[in-house]
Simulated scan of single mutants.
Amino acid sequence: MEAGRHHLPPAFDVLEEEAVGLGARVARARLHGARGLWDPVARTIWIEEAYSDAWAALVLAHELEHVRRGDASPQLLGVERMIDERVSRRFIDPGQYARAESLIGPAPALIAEELDLPTWVVEAWQRQARRGGARAQHVGGLVPRPPH
């Protein structure tokens, strides 16, 4: 990433356009515990209605990965985690993450609060770093390497 360049995560409406491009529609409803669901029969991504657009965008990005993969049923934990890691790369700016970690330490919940993200996104980011898929950032934190 270029010095001084700010990483902008995709907005909800941009992700909705991605969904349309993949032949899916996006709807919100009370999901009673689920953050989001992909219904391949109805070609609909359901997002918990209580979420702000910023948090709904994270869930939508996750469900879009299921659409792209052609998933038609619940996936194993390893697949869900891999998808969360892809989402984390879209929404976390490496420099901002490194700065937050250098200020408050590695606790995912505290970093999530600092970055205004759900904890699951930060945990996914950190999982990549622990696996060795990370490189040192200029302020000393670890950031995941982009996939090849």
Rank of each mutant, 00 (worst) to 15 (best):
95 G>V: 03
132 G>P: 13
57 A>P: 06
21 G>W: 12
97 Y>P: 14
99 R>F: 07
35 R>F: 15
55 W>M: 10
100 A>G: 08
126 Q>S: 01
45 I>K: 08
125 W>C: 02
121 V>M: 08
113 E>L: 09
68 R>I: 09
148 H>W: 10
32 H>C: 06
75 Q>W: 02
53 D>Y: 01
21 G>N: 08
97 Y>R: 10
19 A>N: 09
84 D>C: 12
58 L>D: 04
70 G>P: 00
56 A>Q: 00
70 G>K: 04
13 D>Q: 15
61 A>C: 02
104 I>C: 11
57 A>I: 06
101 E>G: 07
118 P>W: 02
94 P>R: 14
46 W>D: 11
54 A>D: 02
148 H>T: 01
22 L>E: 09
14 V>G: 12
88 S>E: 09
4 G>L: 03
119 T>L: 02
81 R>H: 11
45 I>T: 06
84 D>S: 14
99 R>Y: 06
103 L>K: 14
110 L>M: 07
3 A>R: 11
133 G>Y: 10
63 E>A: 00
22 L>A: 06
20 V>Y: 06
67 V>S: 04
70 G>I: 14
40 P>S: 05
115 L>H: 01
98 A>W: 05
101 E>D: 05
4 G>Y: 04
132 G>T: 08
27 A>R: 15
84 D>N: 14
21 G>Q: 10
109 A>E: 12
95 G>P: 01
10 P>Q: 14
43 R>S: 07
46 W>G: 11
61 A>P: 05
110 L>I: 10
91 F>W: 15
62 H>C: 02
55 W>N: 09
127 R>K: 02
122 V>R: 00
20 V>R: 09
80 E>A: 11
56 A>N: 06
57 A>T: 08
48 E>L: 06
83 I>Q: 02
15 L>I: 12
83 I>G: 06
40 P>E: 08
128 Q>M: 12
106 P>T: 03
122 V>D: 03
62 H>W: 03
96 Q>F: 07
133 G>D: 12
12 F>L: 10
45 I>H: 10
54 A>C: 01
12 F>W: 07
82 M>A: 15
64 L>P: 01
92 I>F: 13
3 A>S: 10
145 R>M: 11
147 P>M: 03
82 M>R: 15
45 I>W: 08
6 H>D: 07
84 D>Y: 10
144 P>E: 13
48 E>H: 05
15 L>F: 11
133 G>I: 09
114 E>S: 14
33 G>I: 00
12 F>G: 05
42 A>R: 15
